[in-house]
Amino acid sequence: AQADTYKWITFKPQGAGDAQAVTTQWLVDEFAKRTEGMHSIEVFWGGSVAKTREIPEALSAGVGDFGDIITPYFPDLLPLNNAVGFFIPQPMNSLEVGQFMEKMHATYPQFSAELENQNLHAFGFRPLEDYGLLCTKPVKSAADMKGLRIRSYGFAYPKLIEALGASPVSIATSEAYEALQRSIIDCTPIGPALARGWKYDEVAKYYVEVPLGASFGHLLAMNLDSYNAMDDETRGVIDQLGKDYLVEYARVLDEDAARVRELWKGELGVEVIPFPKEDLLGVLDDAGVQEVRQEWIGKADALGVPAEEIAESFDFDTPS
């Protein structure tokens, strides 16, 4: 067999130093190690080849062999793989969301068929961390949320925020820092590691533990032709690496979150506020929230998967 150098196109800057960047490098190193230096991956960092919204097309057409797809940007292109995003809040943590995606792909061929239609193959899953609400003022209950301006994005947050009696404000990720600083928004849904990464915790000092759950996330994807062209051994290495990646990523993510929470206690002075779970669960019956959930169930049903049954994975256990 001949030695191949694969191209990985990513939006992530190399120096980002967060769990996503660190584990991408880990994966690249492991790949070289496990193929005994036979093959390697060259990473094109920081969107130098394809920006976040260009990656699926670029990958599908073979601009790169590997890439990370921010799934929630493509709900209409990849409805099945976006399942988790329609169900905010949901009870699973990061690792569980990753395992959920693995299970879906193993159980229902429709999940990978949706990607194959785009000439893509997912070999691994990168969920985001558990989200709470980072605010510029203390929020202790759903009653405190009335009238707050909360940053919203994607397809589930707007309705959820409205159901909580707050107003959803769409703000670009890179403008959210200034928006928090200038009281254009009062809160944004986020996890500790990302809050630190974007430095939002410099300007918003209350982290409210609203149990929004982990969201999904990124597909570690390959150009389908590049995947099929690999010999069995290399393909086996990739399949296994995808599984190992989730474990490694979840580990680094937990470490990160713990480190940030220590920083918050110390010099950064971010106060962590508990939030009554029932206040959040109380709004799940809201018509708007249900409409978003039903939207996914409708789409998924049409694609031939038992949607109602899958949706049960997102039910919170009723408190006994």
Partner: peptide, 16 residues
């Protein structure tokens, strides 16, 4: 081709 694809999947701008 991109526009036709977007039309085929009924792509929406989703936000508030």
């Amino acid at each position: 081709m991109m526009a036709a694809k977007s039309f085929a999947i009924g792509e929406l701008e989703r936000g508030s």
